[in-house]
Structures are given as structure tokens and as C-alpha cells.
């Protein structure tokens, strides 16, 4: 069997998957960085329906004197140079929560941050919806992410988790079907974390509160929805970091190439 037939007929990643992966990666990056601009407008998080400066924040980023800090509950962590108090590229001290290199735009503008955020939120939401429909239609979800019965065994999950710490196993894994940890992670990201970002985002909107009051109630109030929105974004950043480590360890060139061109489903025998 010639190699190129194998690649074109049975790509490791389908066209819809590759297209969405690229668009989604761009959207999530812009949404994260413009989201941090919006967070900088009020770097405090609360639980419940209301929350403002006189109310107790479970998390706050701030600046006192020359030091920046992150406060989690009663624990204060010094973050000078990184959060709350840092120097911009021209050496000026800034006291916005997240530094300019992490935000869009790089200088503080809540209005511009919101514009970027909502525009890319629409592309992200439409893209995710189309990807879900297409992936059910072409049976990507049912074939590649479906959990077999034996995969639910704790011993199986534990073994797969341990395999993720063994570089030799990771190096060989690039052409294999998804393992149980990959399946659970991708299902969790696509069907739980990403929709959660959309729904907690909508739950912060006063017009949606009038249209769908249950949505805000579901998260325990507008400020809780804002906290869940932030925490879910943090989980997505964590996913991204582990995802990058796994790509780098399993052969970054062929992995990136496969996510752009499709790649081959089974390792061609050479």
C-alpha cells in the first residue's frame, strides 16, 4: 500500500478536527488575554450574587507600597514583578493585576479588551458548535473518544496515568489510538470546560439574566459565575501546558504536521 493513499484516506486528524483545532487555539488565546484585561478592571473574585470592594473577595490581586500580591482566602503570596506590581517594557511601575505581556491590548483598556473578547467569543462559540455537530456526524466522537467498558476500570486508568510519566511510552504513542487519559481529557475539555466558559460568560450578562434567569441561578449568582469563568479558564491553561509537554515529548514535528496536514492513522510500515 503506498504511503500517501494511507494518509489521504485515513488521516489521523480529520479535516474538521484540524480546521477547528486551529481556529479554536487562536480564539482561546485571544479570549484568555483579552479576558485578563477585563479581569484587571476589577481583580477581585467573590461567591454569590453580588460582590464589590466592601465585600469579602475569596481571591484578590493587588499592590501595596512597592510589592504586588495575590491573596487566596487568608493566604497572601508575594507576586512582585509578576502580578499586581511590575515594570512595563519601558521600566515604568504598573499596578494592574496581570502584566501587559499577558493581556490584549498590552496597555490597559477595558473597552478594547471587551471588544476583542466578544468578537472572538462569537467565533469560538460558533466554531465549537459546528465542530460538535460535525464530529458526531462523522463519528469522530463515537469512534475515537468512546470509552470502552474495560477502560473504565480504575486499574486501567491508573496504568494509563502512569504511562504519561514515562517518556519512552510517550515517544511511541504518537500513532496509537487515544488512551483513556486522552479520551477523558478531550471529552472533559470539549464537552465540559469549553461549554462552561460560554455559559458562565452568558450568566454574567444582565440582559441574559432577564432572558434566562435560571442560567445565573445555576451557578449560584453573577459573582459565582464570574469566579467559575476565571477558574475554568485557569483549568484550560493547565490543560494547554500539559498538552504542550505531551506534544513536545511525543515528537513535536510529526504531531504538529499531523494537526495541520492530517497525518496517517497507522504508522506506515517502511
Amino acid at each position: 500500500m503506498p504511503k500517501d493513499v494511507l494518509i489521504s484516506k485515513h488521516p489521523r486528524h480529520r479535516l474538521a478536527t484540524r480546521l477547528w483545532h486551529g481556529i479554536n487555539a487562536l480564539c482561546l488565546l485571544v479570549l484568555l488575554m483579552s479576558g485578563l484585561t477585563i479581569f484587571n478592571a476589577h481583580p477581585r473574585l467573590y461567591w454569590g450574587e453580588y460582590g464589590a470592594n466592601d465585600d469579602y473577595a475569596w481571591m484578590a490581586i493587588g499592590s501595596s507600597g512597592r510589592s504586588g500580591y495575590l491573596r487566596l482566602g487568608d493566604t497572601r503570596i508575594e507576586t512582585t514583578g509578576f502580578l499586581g506590581n511590575w515594570q512595563d517594557s519601558e521600566g515604568r511601575t504598573r499596578t494592574w493585576a496581570f502584566p501587559g505581556w499577558a493581556t490584549i491590548p498590552s496597555s490597559y483598556s477595558l473597552a478594547d479588551g471587551r471588544r476583542w473578547h466578544f468578537f472572538f467569543a462569537w467565533i469560538f462559540a460558533i466554531g465549537l458548535t459546528l465542530f460538535m455537530i460535525r464530529s458526531l456526524w462523522n463519528r469522530h466522537i463515537q469512534k475515537d473518544l468512546n470509552m470502552r467498558k474495560d477502560e473504565w476500570r480504575p486499574s486501567h486508568i491508573w496504568r494509563s496515568l502512569r504511562d504519561h510519566t514515562r517518556i519512552s511510552v510517550i515517544r511511541q504513542s504518537w500513532s496509537e489510538d487515544y488512551n483513556v487519559i486522552q479520551k477523558l481529557t478531550y471529552i472533559g475539555v470539549i464537552f465540559i470546560l469549553l461549554p462552561l466558559m460560554i455559559f458562565t460568560g452568558l450568566a454574567m450578562s444582565p440582559a441574559m439574566d432577564a432572558n434566562w434567569p435560571l442560567l445565573t441561578d445555576l451557578f449560584g449568582g453573577r459573582q459565582s459565575a464570574r469566579s467559575v469563568h476565571f477558574l475554568t479558564a485557569a483549568l484550560l491553561v493547565l490543560f494547554f501546558l500539559i498538552h504542550m509537554v505531551m506534544v513536545l515529548l511525543s515528537g513535536p514535528v510529526r504531531q504538529v504536521k499531523a494537526m495541520i496536514l492530517g497525518g496517517a492513522r497507522k504508522e506506515p510500515s517502511t
Binding site: A41, P206, R226
Partner: peptide, 12 residues
């Protein structure tokens, strides 16, 4: 009612 500021905070 709940007052929602564009900055992110709310007050009832």
C-alpha cells in the same frame, strides 16, 4: 435589583 458594573463587580 442587581447593578452590574462593566468592570465586573455587582451590588444589590
Amino acid at each position: 435589583t442587581r447593578h452590574d458594573c462593566v468592570e465586573g463587580w455587582s451590588a444589590i
